[in-house]
Write a protein that binds this DNA or RNA. Structure first.
Lengths: 347, 347
DNA sequence: CTGAAAGCGCTTACAG
DNA sequence: CTGAAAGCGCTTACAG
C-alpha cells in the first residue's frame, strides 16, 4: 500500500514538487490554473500528505492530546466529549486516550503524545503519583491539569473545589434535619477524594450533636464498588444492631448508584430511611426513577477553561505563568433526599 | 521549547548518532556499557524521540484509529473503551475521535488518520452516506466497519444482526400476550435503524391479529429525542381517544429512557400499562430502578472481532479478502416488560 | 561492536 | 509566479 508523494503529483502536473507543496499549503503566489490542476490531481488520485514529513519540518503537530483515567466512566466520557468539541472548534486535531487508572499506562500515553509532538496536553490524572511521574515532562510541553490530583501548585490547573462540594452537601443534609451522617467511599491516594473527605469531616464536626463517620472499603468509585461498599455498610449496621445513618454521602455518582442498589436489596428505602447524595452530576443522575441529588461539577465551564488555558500556554510558547482556576460546584437537588423520617433497623 | 535530538545524545555519549538509534531500538549488537550510558543520558535529559522522523522512515506509525459517531453516548463509550484496551494489548497506540454525527467531521477525522499513516482504522459510521464518502480511502488503508451503515458488501465489517434483534423483541412481547405494538424512533438515513424497523414490521405482520405501527418524529436517538417522541406519541393517543399500545419498542436504550420519562409524566405506567424494550444494553440499562428489558449487542465480542479482523487485514498487507461477521444479539429480560394488564386511556 | 552515508516526504528561504 | 537546494530527525543497509 505505497502512497503517492508530492513528487508523484508534481510529475503528473508537470511542475516542481515545491509548487505542489505551495498549492497544498494554500499559498497565494501561485497561478490559479496551476493551483487548480494540482488540486484536481490530488483529488483524483486520492493523495493524502504525509503528516510525519510535514511535522518533521514544522516541529509541532498542532494537535493536542487528552488523557483521562477511564473513558467508560460517564463523567470522563462527558468531559472528553466537550474537550474534543471545543478543541476542534479551534482547528486542533485531538488525540484521546485512557490510562485505565494505571500509572504505567498514563506514562506511556504521555510519552506517545510527546513523541508525536503535540502542542499541548490536557490531563486528568490517575492519582497523587501522577505528578511525580509527570515531572520530567513538565516544561517540555504545555500541560493543563484537569482536576486536583496534584500535591502542590506547580502546574496549570483547572479544578472544582471538591472541599466546598461536600461542605455544601453536608449543610444541605443538616438543613433537612439529619444528625447522623456517613460518607461512603474514596481512597487516600486520590487528592480529589481526600478533599471530599475533608469537607465532609469539617462540616460535620462543626455542627453540634452530629454523628459522622467515613466508611470506606474499596479504592474504586465505580458502580460495583459502591454496591459492595453499601452492602457491607448496611450489614455492619445490622450486625451491630444500630441504625443506618439517615444521611448518606458518596464519593461519586457511579458509586452512589451502587449504594442505591445495595440499599434496595437491603430493604433500606431512599429517601424514606436515608437520604443519598452523589458527586459529579453525570447524565444518568437526572434519569427518571434515578433522580439523584448530587454535587455537580460544572463540566462545560471546566472544559472551556481547560481549552482556553491550554491555548494560552501554547500561544505563550513556554514563557507563560502558571494558570490556575478553581470552579465552584453546585448542589443539584433531586429526589433522593428528604427530611429524616423513620430510621432503618434490622427487622 | 526545542527538544533534544539523537545527535545531541550522541555528542554527550561520545558516540555516533547511529549508535544512539540502535540503542533506542533495542538492538543487541551493541556493547552493554555503551547501551547503558546512552540510555542513562536519555533518561536524565528527558529525551523523547521524534515520532514524525521515525515514521518518515518506517512509513507506518503502527497505531490504529478509532472513529465513533458520538463518544458521549454510553454505547459508543463502552465500545471505545473495549477497543482501546484490546488494541493496546496488541501493543498499538490508539487514536480516538468522534464524528459528532456529522459527515464532514467524519471525513476530516479519516483524513487526519490517513495523513498520520495509521496502520488501520475501526470505524463506526455516521449513516448511509459514510460509505460513499469513504470510497476514496478504501484500499489505501485497512478499515473495519463496526455496525452496518454500509449499503453493500464492499468492506470488512462486524455487525450485530439488527433485524434479528427486533424480531426477537417482538416475539417476546407476543409471547407475553401483547397484540398492540408500536416502534418508536429511528431514521431512514441509518441502515441500522432501517433494519430494526424491518425486523419489527416483519415479525408483527407475520402474527395474526396484531396491530402495529412505526411512530417516528425526530432523527436522533438520544434520551432527549425519546422523551419528545414519547410525549408526542402519548398525547396523540389521548387526542385520538385511543389506547396507548401495550408493547413499546425503541430504537435504542437512550431513546427508551426518554420514553420512560415521558411515560411517567403522561401517567403511563411501565410495565403496568405498557411494556418497554430498548436496544443496545448500555450499562445504565441494568441500573436499579431502571432495569430496562433490552436487546443486547454483545459489545465485547464485537470489539474483539473488530480488533482481530483489523490485525488480520494489516498482517495481510492489503492482499486480504474482505472479512465479514454478523453477531447475534441477545434479549436481556429485566423489569420493564410484563403481560398486558390494563390499557391506558386518557383519564 | 561501531560509524559514514543515503534517504524517508515534506517546507521554506533564496534566487530568478 | 516558479524551481533548485538545504534540511527537519530519524533508520538502515553497508563497510569496517
Amino acid at each position: 500500500m505505497d502512497r503517492l508523494t508530492i513528487k508523484d503529483i508534481a510529475r503528473m502536473a508537470g511542475v516542481s514538487h515545491t509548487t505542489v507543496s505551495r498549492a497544498l499549503n494554500g499559498a497565494r503566489n501561485i497561478r490559479p490554473e496551476t493551483y487548480a490542476r494540482i488540486m484536481e490531481i490530488c483529488r483524483d488520485t486520492g493523495y493524502t500528505l504525509n503528516a510525519a514529513a510535514r511535522q518533521l519540518k514544522r516541529s509541532d503537530s498542532g494537535a493536542i492530546g487528552i488523557i483521562v483515567p477511564d473513558i467508560s466512566n460517564a463523567f470522563f466520557c462527558e468531559l472528553t466529549r466537550h474537550l474534543e468539541w471545543l478543541a476542534r472548534q479551534k482547528g486542533r486535531n485531538v488525540f484521546i486516550s485512557s490510562s485505565f487508572y494505571d500509572y504505567a499506562i498514563e506514562d506511556k500515553n504521555i510519552r506517545a503524545l510527546m513523541e508525536n509532538r503535540v502542542s499541548g496536553i490536557i490531563l486528568s490524572g490517575v492519582g497523587d503519583q501522577t505528578y511525580l511521574r509527570l515531572r520530567d515532562y513538565l516544561g517540555k510541553v504545555p500541560i493543563v491539569f484537569l482536576g486536583d490530583n496534584i500535591p502542590a501548585g506547580m502546574v496549570s490547573q483547572i479544578a472544582v473545589d471538591n472541599y466546598a462540594g461536600t461542605l455544601m452537601a453536608v449543610e444541605y443534609l443538616l438543613s433537612l434535619g439529619h444528625r447522623d451522617l456517613v460518607f461512603l467511599g474514596g481512597r487516600d491516594s486520590s487528592v480529589t477524594h481526600r478533599r471530599r473527605h475533608q469537607g465532609f469531616l469539617d462540616a460535620a464536626s462543626a455542627a453540634a450533636g452530629v454523628r459522622h463517620e467515613i466508611f470506606t472499603m474499596l479504592s474504586g468509585s465505580r458502580i460495583e464498588d459502591g454496591y459492595r461498599t453499601g452492602l457491607a455498610y448496611f450489614s455492619r449496621c445490622a450486625e451491630e444492631g444500630r441504625p443506618v445513618a439517615t444521611g448518606l454521602l458518596c464519593i461519586s455518582d457511579h458509586f452512589a448508584l451502587g449504594v442505591m442498589q445495595a440499599a434496595e436489596e437491603s430493604g433500606v428505602d431512599i429517601p424514606g430511611h436515608a437520604s443519598l447524595v452523589g458527586f459529579d452530576d453525570v447524565s444518568f443522575a437526572a434519569l427518571p426513577r434515578i433522580q439523584l441529588t448530587t454535587v455537580a461539577q460544572p463540566k462545560e465551564e471546566m472544559c472551556s477553561s481547560a481549552v482556553e488555558t491550554l491555548e494560552g500556554l501554547i500561544a505563550a510558547g513556554g514563557k507563560a505563568e502558571l494558570q490556575r482556576k478553581t470552579i465552584q460546584p453546585v448542589l443539584v437537588r433531586r429526589n433522593t433526599c428528604g427530611p429524616p423520617r423513620q430510621q432503618w433497623h434490622r427487622s
